[in-house]
Amino acid sequence: MSVNFGPHRLVVGAHYGMRDWLSQRVTAVLMALFTVLVLAELIFTKGPIGYTQWAGIFSPQWMKALTFTVILSLLYHVWVGMRNIFQDYVHPYGVRFVLDVFAIVWLVSCAGWGIQVLWRL
């Protein structure tokens, strides 16, 4: 049997916190790079930006796939953040549970809407 104590203690995969901490940072970097990409597309667009130019940024298939991933990143990033806020300021477990469920419903609904908008373009 493999050793899972002492220096070999398993520190991921059981809500020790490493997974959420790291995924919040990885999703943050991904969203930051996406922001820079969209800004660059806007800056290097010649002339005034109307509907055609704006929608054109999101129309290539690779951009849709990337934006889809960014929406999922946002979903997870905000979930970790809101859960942190609730854990810090809302101590009664019942209230915190209701707020957690509210945050999940809110975020999944928003993500679904965003993904629908994206893929029907």
């Binding site: 509907y51 704006w54 928003c110 809407w113 965003g114 908008v117 029907r120 373009l121």
Partner: peptide, 10 residues
């Protein structure tokens, strides 16, 4: 998302 929807759909 409302802004994203309306700015990009048509």
């Amino acid at each position: 998302i409302w802004m994203f929807d309306n700015s990009i759909s048509s």
